[in-house]
């Protein structure tokens, strides 16, 4: 509490200072690198794209890419974060207005997810695979442990408990993890059998129904 109260006092609101030229340049480089990386990752895949190519495509030097990002994975991480921010912004707007049962709301949420992610399937797969890479900084957030998605699922389940269509005796964390495992499987399908958003949603719907049998109120 103290910390929260102290922050505004320590940093009183000021009129934004004129942007420092160096900062502006750095920001511009960063944006150009991310835009270039987005394009190259989508067309050539993550593994098939080098930092050198990203730099050339962005029209900056290799050195300046490395002054902004520690590694290629960090570029990917930032690209993904930008995209996911868009998705979660959309979900934050939509979720409170969803009607129907917990199962219906979960299905809709995942359907929105797949419709969004399927456009960048290869990138998501690279991102998931990288999650198990050694050399990652501990601060990187692998998709499988995506906190925003997990929060949305947990909120959905808690709402269900309050409304009585999720058994109050279950541990929402466990249900959430099962849903995440099911979600990961759907990604494998997408990767291996080139499933589209519709096929992904259908498989996810069946899995949600099976899990729901385990969280439905008894009696």
């Amino acid at each position: 509490m103290d910390g929260a109260a102290a922050t505004p006092a320590a940093a009183p609101l000021k009129v934004a200072p004129p942007p420092n030229l160096r900062q502006t340049q750095k920001e511009a480089t960063r944006n150009r690198v991310i835009e270039a990386a987005k394009e190259l990752f989508d067309t050539q895949g993550y593994q098939g794209t080098t930092i050198r190519e990203i730099a050339a495509h962005a029209g900056v030097s290799v050195g300046s890419v490395f002054t902004t990002f520690a590694s290629k994975y960090e570029v990917l991480s930032q690209v993904m974060q930008d995209r996911l921010d868009g998705l979660y912004g959309e979900l934050d707007r939509v979720m409170p207005h969803l009607r129907g049962s917990t199962v219906d709301r979960l299905r809709t949420m995942f359907a929105i997810h797949f419709a969004f992610e399927v456009r960048h399937k290869r990138l998501f797969l690279a991102y998931i695979a990288s999650a198990f890479d050694w050399t990652l900084p501990s601060s990187s957030i692998p998709i499988g442990r995506n906190a925003r998605l997990q929060e949305i699922i947990s909120d959905c389940l808690r709402k269900g408990m309050a409304e009585g269509d999720v058994d109050a005796g279950v541990d929402p964390d466990e249900i959430k993890d099962l849903l995440m495992a099911a979600y990961v499987w759907v990604y494998r399908l997408a990767a291996w059998h080139d499933a589209d958003a519709k096929a992904m949603t259908e498989v996810m719907d069946r899995q949600i129904a099976l899990i729901a049998a385990g969280f439905a109120p008894k009696g």
Binding site: D177, L178, M180, A181, A182, V184, W185, R206, Q207, L210, I211
Partner: peptide, 15 residues
């Protein structure tokens, strides 16, 4: 649902 259930159990195990 048996086949789906077996696959989901396996994926829960992996997760």
């Amino acid at each position: 649902a048996s086949e789906l259930r077996a696959q989901m159990l396996f994926d829960a195990y992996l997760s």
